[in-house]
Design a protein around this nucleic acid. Structure first.
Lengths: 178, 178
DNA sequence: CTAGAAATTCAACAGGTGTTGACTTATGAG
DNA sequence: CTCATAAGTCAACACCTGTTGAATTTCTAG
Protein backbone atom coordinates (compact mmCIF):
# COMPACT_ATOMS: atom_id res chain seq x y z
CA UNK A 1 0.00 0.00 0.00
CA UNK A 2 2.86 2.41 0.64
CA UNK A 3 4.92 1.19 -2.25
CA UNK A 4 2.86 3.54 -4.37
CA UNK A 5 3.93 6.42 -2.17
CA UNK A 6 7.55 5.52 -2.79
CA UNK A 7 7.23 5.68 -6.56
CA UNK A 8 5.12 8.80 -6.18
CA UNK A 9 8.07 10.30 -4.42
CA UNK A 10 10.49 9.07 -7.06
CA UNK A 11 8.28 10.72 -9.67
CA UNK A 12 8.26 13.95 -7.68
CA UNK A 13 12.02 13.97 -7.34
CA UNK A 14 12.54 13.55 -11.05
CA UNK A 15 9.87 16.15 -11.80
CA UNK A 16 11.54 18.70 -9.56
CA UNK A 17 14.88 18.13 -11.24
CA UNK A 18 13.52 18.56 -14.75
CA UNK A 19 10.61 20.98 -14.41
CA UNK A 20 12.43 23.41 -12.16
CA UNK A 21 15.47 23.68 -14.35
CA UNK A 22 13.98 23.62 -17.82
CA UNK A 23 10.55 25.08 -17.31
CA UNK A 24 7.05 23.75 -17.47
CA UNK A 25 6.46 23.49 -21.18
CA UNK A 26 9.92 22.22 -22.08
CA UNK A 27 9.73 18.89 -20.35
CA UNK A 28 7.63 15.95 -21.51
CA UNK A 29 5.88 13.74 -19.03
CA UNK A 30 7.38 10.71 -20.71
CA UNK A 31 10.83 11.98 -19.88
CA UNK A 32 9.96 12.38 -16.22
CA UNK A 33 8.41 8.93 -16.10
CA UNK A 34 11.45 7.39 -17.74
CA UNK A 35 13.73 9.11 -15.26
CA UNK A 36 11.71 7.62 -12.45
CA UNK A 37 11.63 4.23 -14.11
CA UNK A 38 7.89 3.93 -14.49
CA UNK A 39 5.23 4.36 -17.13
CA UNK A 40 3.83 7.77 -18.10
CA UNK A 41 0.31 6.77 -17.25
CA UNK A 42 1.14 6.79 -13.57
CA UNK A 43 1.62 10.52 -13.59
CA UNK A 44 -1.89 11.31 -14.72
CA UNK A 45 -3.09 8.64 -12.33
CA UNK A 46 -1.29 9.92 -9.26
CA UNK A 47 -1.31 13.65 -9.84
CA UNK A 48 -4.27 14.12 -12.12
CA UNK A 49 -2.24 15.65 -14.92
CA UNK A 50 0.84 17.67 -15.69
CA UNK A 51 -0.23 20.76 -13.82
CA UNK A 52 -1.12 18.63 -10.84
CA UNK A 53 2.36 17.17 -10.85
CA UNK A 54 3.92 20.59 -11.05
CA UNK A 55 1.79 21.87 -8.21
CA UNK A 56 2.70 18.87 -6.08
CA UNK A 57 6.29 19.72 -6.86
CA UNK A 58 5.91 23.10 -5.19
CA UNK A 59 4.29 21.67 -2.07
CA UNK A 60 6.36 22.58 0.96
CA UNK A 61 9.43 23.04 -1.17
CA UNK A 62 10.09 26.64 -0.37
CA UNK A 63 11.34 27.18 3.11
CA UNK A 64 13.08 30.47 3.44
CA UNK A 65 15.22 30.45 6.56
CA UNK A 66 13.56 31.73 9.69
CA UNK A 67 15.63 34.62 10.86
CA UNK A 68 14.77 37.49 13.09
CA UNK A 69 17.30 40.19 12.28
CA UNK A 70 18.77 41.75 9.20
CA UNK A 71 22.29 40.65 9.98
CA UNK A 72 21.22 37.02 10.25
CA UNK A 73 19.26 37.41 7.05
CA UNK A 74 22.30 38.45 5.10
CA UNK A 75 24.33 35.55 6.42
CA UNK A 76 21.53 33.11 5.66
CA UNK A 77 21.30 34.32 2.07
CA UNK A 78 25.04 34.10 1.63
CA UNK A 79 24.96 30.57 2.92
CA UNK A 80 22.08 29.74 0.60
CA UNK A 81 23.89 31.07 -2.44
CA UNK A 82 27.22 29.45 -1.64
CA UNK A 83 26.24 26.12 -0.22
CA UNK A 84 22.99 25.34 -1.97
CA UNK A 85 23.28 22.28 -4.21
CA UNK A 86 24.00 23.91 -7.52
CA UNK A 87 23.17 20.80 -9.48
CA UNK A 88 19.49 21.51 -9.32
CA UNK A 89 18.20 19.89 -6.17
CA UNK A 90 16.82 22.93 -4.45
CA UNK A 91 14.66 25.51 -6.20
CA UNK A 92 16.63 28.69 -6.63
CA UNK A 93 15.15 32.10 -7.05
CA UNK A 94 16.23 31.95 -10.64
CA UNK A 95 14.40 28.76 -11.33
CA UNK A 96 11.32 30.32 -9.85
CA UNK A 97 11.61 33.07 -12.36
CA UNK A 98 12.05 30.69 -15.23
CA UNK A 99 8.90 28.86 -14.28
CA UNK A 100 7.14 32.12 -13.88
CA UNK A 101 8.02 33.25 -17.34
CA UNK A 102 6.84 30.18 -19.14
CA UNK A 103 3.09 30.14 -18.70
CA UNK A 104 0.67 32.57 -17.14
CA UNK A 105 -1.22 29.98 -15.19
CA UNK A 106 1.92 28.29 -13.96
CA UNK A 107 3.36 31.66 -13.08
CA UNK A 108 0.38 32.37 -10.89
CA UNK A 109 0.87 29.08 -9.12
CA UNK A 110 4.47 29.88 -8.36
CA UNK A 111 3.68 33.39 -7.28
CA UNK A 112 0.92 32.24 -4.98
CA UNK A 113 2.99 29.52 -3.40
CA UNK A 114 6.39 31.05 -3.04
CA UNK A 115 7.07 34.57 -4.15
CA UNK A 116 4.41 36.00 -1.89
CA UNK A 117 5.51 33.84 1.02
CA UNK A 118 9.15 34.78 0.66
CA UNK A 119 8.21 38.40 0.39
CA UNK A 120 6.15 38.17 3.55
CA UNK A 121 9.07 36.79 5.46
CA UNK A 122 11.40 39.43 4.13
CA UNK A 123 9.00 42.19 5.03
CA UNK A 124 8.68 40.85 8.55
CA UNK A 125 12.44 40.82 9.02
CA UNK A 126 13.24 43.98 7.14
CA UNK A 127 10.22 45.90 8.26
CA UNK A 128 9.56 47.80 5.06
CA UNK A 129 7.91 46.60 1.84
CA UNK A 130 10.09 48.77 -0.33
CA UNK A 131 13.39 47.61 1.09
CA UNK A 132 12.14 44.03 1.00
CA UNK A 133 11.26 44.36 -2.67
CA UNK A 134 14.64 45.86 -3.47
CA UNK A 135 16.35 43.12 -1.51
CA UNK A 136 14.59 40.41 -3.44
CA UNK A 137 15.08 42.15 -6.79
CA UNK A 138 18.77 42.51 -6.25
CA UNK A 139 19.23 38.84 -5.42
CA UNK A 140 17.14 37.71 -8.37
CA UNK A 141 19.11 39.91 -10.70
CA UNK A 142 22.44 38.63 -9.53
CA UNK A 143 21.36 35.00 -9.74
CA UNK A 144 20.09 35.71 -13.22
CA UNK A 145 23.27 37.41 -14.30
CA UNK A 146 25.40 34.58 -13.03
CA UNK A 147 23.52 31.48 -13.95
CA UNK A 148 21.45 32.31 -16.96
CA UNK A 149 23.03 35.25 -18.69
CA UNK A 150 26.54 34.24 -17.63
CA UNK A 151 27.76 37.80 -17.44
CA UNK A 152 31.45 38.44 -17.57
CA UNK A 153 32.44 40.20 -14.40
CA UNK A 154 30.54 37.79 -12.21
CA UNK A 155 33.06 35.33 -10.77
CA UNK A 156 32.46 31.68 -9.95
CA UNK A 157 30.48 31.15 -6.74
CA UNK A 158 33.50 29.84 -4.89
CA UNK A 159 35.48 33.00 -5.61
CA UNK A 160 35.61 35.43 -2.69
CA UNK A 161 34.42 38.26 -4.90
CA UNK A 162 31.15 36.46 -5.50
CA UNK A 163 30.34 36.81 -1.82
CA UNK A 164 31.57 40.38 -1.83
CA UNK A 165 29.16 41.24 -4.64
CA UNK A 166 26.24 39.70 -2.82
CA UNK A 167 27.06 41.53 0.39
CA UNK A 168 27.42 44.81 -1.43
CA UNK A 169 24.08 44.44 -3.20
CA UNK A 170 22.16 43.34 -0.13
CA UNK A 171 23.61 46.17 1.90
CA UNK A 172 22.61 48.63 -0.80
CA UNK A 173 19.03 47.35 -0.84
CA UNK A 174 18.77 47.53 2.93
CA UNK A 175 20.26 51.01 2.97
CA UNK A 176 17.48 52.47 0.88
CA UNK A 177 15.59 55.30 2.50
CA UNK A 178 12.68 56.97 0.88
CA UNK B 1 8.08 41.82 -55.96
CA UNK B 2 8.31 43.88 -52.79
CA UNK B 3 4.90 42.88 -51.62
CA UNK B 4 6.57 39.82 -50.17
CA UNK B 5 8.81 42.05 -48.11
CA UNK B 6 5.79 43.80 -46.71
CA UNK B 7 4.18 40.61 -45.45
CA UNK B 8 7.59 39.45 -44.27
CA UNK B 9 7.62 42.53 -42.13
CA UNK B 10 4.09 41.97 -40.94
CA UNK B 11 5.14 38.46 -39.92
CA UNK B 12 8.15 39.83 -38.08
CA UNK B 13 6.08 42.36 -36.20
CA UNK B 14 3.66 39.75 -35.00
CA UNK B 15 6.50 37.38 -34.15
CA UNK B 16 8.20 40.02 -32.03
CA UNK B 17 5.03 40.72 -30.15
CA UNK B 18 4.34 37.09 -29.33
CA UNK B 19 7.76 35.46 -29.10
CA UNK B 20 9.31 38.18 -27.01
CA UNK B 21 6.55 38.26 -24.47
CA UNK B 22 5.67 34.60 -24.14
CA UNK B 23 8.89 32.81 -24.98
CA UNK B 24 10.07 30.66 -27.81
CA UNK B 25 8.37 27.37 -27.05
CA UNK B 26 5.08 28.82 -25.90
CA UNK B 27 3.98 30.32 -29.19
CA UNK B 28 2.80 28.31 -32.19
CA UNK B 29 3.72 29.39 -35.68
CA UNK B 30 0.09 29.14 -36.67
CA UNK B 31 -0.75 31.80 -34.14
CA UNK B 32 1.85 34.16 -35.51
CA UNK B 33 0.69 33.55 -39.07
CA UNK B 34 -2.91 34.17 -38.11
CA UNK B 35 -1.96 37.39 -36.39
CA UNK B 36 -0.25 38.52 -39.57
CA UNK B 37 -3.18 37.38 -41.69
CA UNK B 38 -1.31 34.83 -43.78
CA UNK B 39 -0.76 31.10 -43.96
CA UNK B 40 1.71 29.28 -41.71
CA UNK B 41 3.63 27.90 -44.65
CA UNK B 42 4.98 31.33 -45.43
CA UNK B 43 7.04 31.35 -42.26
CA UNK B 44 9.06 28.29 -43.14
CA UNK B 45 9.30 29.63 -46.68
CA UNK B 46 10.57 33.07 -45.75
CA UNK B 47 12.62 32.38 -42.66
CA UNK B 48 13.54 28.74 -43.09
CA UNK B 49 11.86 27.67 -39.89
CA UNK B 50 10.88 28.76 -36.43
CA UNK B 51 14.40 29.39 -35.23
CA UNK B 52 15.11 31.38 -38.36
CA UNK B 53 12.10 33.56 -37.65
CA UNK B 54 13.21 34.10 -34.08
CA UNK B 55 16.71 34.99 -35.17
CA UNK B 56 15.37 37.43 -37.74
CA UNK B 57 13.36 38.93 -34.93
CA UNK B 58 16.54 39.82 -33.05
CA UNK B 59 18.19 41.41 -36.07
CA UNK B 60 19.08 44.97 -35.25
CA UNK B 61 16.46 45.14 -32.54
CA UNK B 62 18.76 45.86 -29.67
CA UNK B 63 20.21 49.31 -29.70
CA UNK B 64 21.45 50.32 -26.32
CA UNK B 65 21.82 54.09 -26.17
CA UNK B 66 25.22 55.47 -27.11
CA UNK B 67 26.44 57.37 -24.12
CA UNK B 68 29.92 58.31 -23.07
CA UNK B 69 29.67 58.98 -19.35
CA UNK B 70 28.16 57.34 -16.34
CA UNK B 71 25.85 60.22 -15.59
CA UNK B 72 24.37 60.11 -19.08
CA UNK B 73 24.07 56.36 -18.77
CA UNK B 74 21.91 56.60 -15.68
CA UNK B 75 19.64 59.15 -17.32
CA UNK B 76 19.35 57.04 -20.46
CA UNK B 77 18.34 53.98 -18.47
CA UNK B 78 15.79 55.97 -16.51
CA UNK B 79 14.35 57.23 -19.75
CA UNK B 80 14.29 53.73 -21.16
CA UNK B 81 12.43 52.34 -18.16
CA UNK B 82 9.94 55.15 -17.93
CA UNK B 83 9.19 55.91 -21.54
CA UNK B 84 9.70 52.58 -23.28
CA UNK B 85 6.47 51.27 -24.80
CA UNK B 86 5.32 49.02 -22.00
CA UNK B 87 2.84 47.20 -24.19
CA UNK B 88 5.51 44.99 -25.66
CA UNK B 89 6.88 46.79 -28.69
CA UNK B 90 10.48 46.99 -27.63
CA UNK B 91 12.35 44.05 -26.17
CA UNK B 92 12.94 44.66 -22.52
CA UNK B 93 15.73 43.15 -20.51
CA UNK B 94 13.13 41.01 -18.87
CA UNK B 95 11.88 39.61 -22.12
CA UNK B 96 15.42 38.75 -23.02
CA UNK B 97 15.68 36.75 -19.88
CA UNK B 98 12.46 34.94 -20.53
CA UNK B 99 13.67 33.90 -23.95
CA UNK B 100 16.94 32.88 -22.45
CA UNK B 101 15.34 30.62 -19.92
CA UNK B 102 13.19 28.73 -22.36
CA UNK B 103 15.62 26.82 -24.53
CA UNK B 104 19.38 26.40 -24.41
CA UNK B 105 19.93 26.99 -28.10
CA UNK B 106 17.66 29.99 -28.15
CA UNK B 107 19.35 31.29 -25.05
CA UNK B 108 22.68 31.18 -26.82
CA UNK B 109 21.25 33.14 -29.72
CA UNK B 110 20.01 35.85 -27.42
CA UNK B 111 23.22 35.96 -25.47
CA UNK B 112 25.30 36.19 -28.61
CA UNK B 113 23.17 38.91 -30.15
CA UNK B 114 22.31 41.13 -27.27
CA UNK B 115 23.52 40.36 -23.79
CA UNK B 116 27.15 40.39 -24.85
CA UNK B 117 26.69 43.55 -26.89
CA UNK B 118 24.96 45.40 -24.10
CA UNK B 119 27.62 44.28 -21.69
CA UNK B 120 30.34 45.52 -23.99
CA UNK B 121 28.78 48.92 -24.12
CA UNK B 122 28.35 49.08 -20.40
CA UNK B 123 31.94 48.07 -19.80
CA UNK B 124 33.14 50.73 -22.17
CA UNK B 125 31.20 53.42 -20.36
CA UNK B 126 31.68 52.16 -16.83
CA UNK B 127 35.22 50.99 -17.31
CA UNK B 128 35.08 47.92 -15.12
CA UNK B 129 33.60 44.48 -15.89
CA UNK B 130 32.50 43.92 -12.32
CA UNK B 131 30.63 47.17 -11.93
CA UNK B 132 29.09 46.65 -15.37
CA UNK B 133 27.87 43.21 -14.37
CA UNK B 134 26.41 44.52 -11.14
CA UNK B 135 24.75 47.36 -13.02
CA UNK B 136 23.10 44.99 -15.45
CA UNK B 137 22.11 42.52 -12.74
CA UNK B 138 20.46 45.17 -10.68
CA UNK B 139 18.37 46.41 -13.58
CA UNK B 140 17.33 42.94 -14.61
CA UNK B 141 16.31 42.11 -11.07
CA UNK B 142 14.20 45.20 -10.69
CA UNK B 143 12.48 44.67 -14.04
CA UNK B 144 11.81 41.11 -13.02
CA UNK B 145 10.42 42.08 -9.67
CA UNK B 146 8.13 44.64 -11.18
CA UNK B 147 6.84 43.02 -14.31
CA UNK B 148 6.96 39.30 -13.76
CA UNK B 149 6.92 38.69 -10.05
CA UNK B 150 4.82 41.77 -9.35
CA UNK B 151 6.38 42.37 -5.97
CA UNK B 152 4.56 44.50 -3.48
CA UNK B 153 6.75 47.43 -2.61
CA UNK B 154 7.54 48.19 -6.22
CA UNK B 155 5.31 51.07 -7.28
CA UNK B 156 3.85 51.70 -10.71
CA UNK B 157 6.38 53.02 -13.23
CA UNK B 158 4.82 56.45 -13.24
CA UNK B 159 5.21 56.82 -9.50
CA UNK B 160 8.17 58.98 -8.46
CA UNK B 161 9.45 56.25 -6.16
CA UNK B 162 9.94 53.92 -9.10
CA UNK B 163 12.55 56.27 -10.46
CA UNK B 164 14.03 56.70 -7.00
CA UNK B 165 14.48 52.94 -6.69
CA UNK B 166 16.20 52.71 -10.03
CA UNK B 167 18.54 55.56 -9.21
CA UNK B 168 19.39 54.06 -5.86
CA UNK B 169 20.18 50.65 -7.34
CA UNK B 170 22.24 51.99 -10.23
CA UNK B 171 24.22 54.22 -7.90
CA UNK B 172 24.89 51.26 -5.63
CA UNK B 173 26.15 49.15 -8.51
CA UNK B 174 28.42 51.92 -9.74
CA UNK B 175 29.71 52.56 -6.24
CA UNK B 176 31.13 49.09 -5.88
CA UNK B 177 34.85 48.92 -5.23
CA UNK B 178 36.73 45.72 -4.96
C1' DC C 1 -5.97 40.30 -73.01
C1' DT C 2 -2.63 37.06 -71.88
C1' DA C 3 1.43 34.36 -70.72
C1' DG C 4 4.66 33.98 -67.06
C1' DA C 5 6.38 34.80 -62.74
C1' DA C 6 5.81 35.96 -58.05
C1' DA C 7 3.12 35.39 -53.80
C1' DT C 8 0.34 32.81 -51.25
C1' DT C 9 -2.68 28.94 -49.92
C1' DC C 10 -3.93 24.10 -49.38
C1' DA C 11 -3.53 19.54 -47.81
C1' DA C 12 -0.93 16.35 -45.87
C1' DC C 13 3.10 14.49 -43.49
C1' DA C 14 5.67 12.64 -39.52
C1' DG C 15 6.52 13.19 -34.97
C1' DG C 16 5.44 14.58 -30.39
C1' DT C 17 2.04 15.95 -26.56
C1' DG C 18 -1.03 14.74 -22.37
C1' DT C 19 -4.62 11.69 -21.13
C1' DT C 20 -7.64 7.52 -20.73
C1' DG C 21 -9.49 2.73 -20.31
C1' DA C 22 -8.54 -1.98 -20.48
C1' DC C 23 -5.24 -5.28 -19.40
C1' DT C 24 -1.37 -7.51 -16.64
C1' DT C 25 1.63 -8.19 -12.88
C1' DA C 26 2.95 -7.99 -7.98
C1' DT C 27 1.57 -8.11 -3.00
C1' DG C 28 -0.18 -9.77 1.07
C1' DA C 29 -4.01 -11.69 4.04
C1' DG C 30 -6.84 -15.88 5.02
C1' DC D 1 -2.32 -22.15 -2.49
C1' DT D 2 -5.99 -18.62 -3.51
C1' DC D 3 -7.89 -14.83 -4.34
C1' DA D 4 -8.85 -9.91 -3.83
C1' DT D 5 -6.75 -5.72 -4.30
C1' DA D 6 -3.14 -2.62 -5.04
C1' DA D 7 0.43 -1.16 -8.48
C1' DG D 8 1.89 -0.69 -12.78
C1' DT D 9 1.96 -1.45 -18.00
C1' DC D 10 0.21 -1.22 -22.67
C1' DA D 11 -1.93 0.53 -26.59
C1' DA D 12 -4.54 3.81 -28.42
C1' DC D 13 -6.86 8.24 -28.60
C1' DA D 14 -7.27 13.02 -30.11
C1' DC D 15 -4.83 16.94 -30.65
C1' DC D 16 -1.13 20.03 -31.69
C1' DT D 17 3.55 20.90 -33.48
C1' DG D 18 6.79 22.50 -37.50
C1' DT D 19 7.67 21.52 -42.20
C1' DT D 20 7.12 20.41 -47.19
C1' DG D 21 5.59 19.91 -52.17
C1' DA D 22 1.95 20.74 -55.16
C1' DA D 23 -1.83 23.62 -56.47
C1' DT D 24 -3.76 28.17 -56.75
C1' DT D 25 -4.36 32.82 -56.69
C1' DT D 26 -2.47 37.50 -57.53
C1' DC D 27 0.29 40.58 -59.89
C1' DT D 28 2.74 42.47 -63.82
C1' DA D 29 5.13 42.94 -68.28
C1' DG D 30 4.40 42.62 -73.29
Amino acid sequence: MNKALATRERLLTEARKLLWSRGFSNVALREIAQGAGVDVALISRYFGGKKGLFEATLEGAFTSPDVAHEAELVEAVIHMFLHAPRGGEAPSVLQLVQMNAADAEVGDMVRARHAAEMQDKLERVIGDPERAALFMSVLMGYALGEKTLKLRGIPAPDHPRFEAHLRHLMAAALAYVR
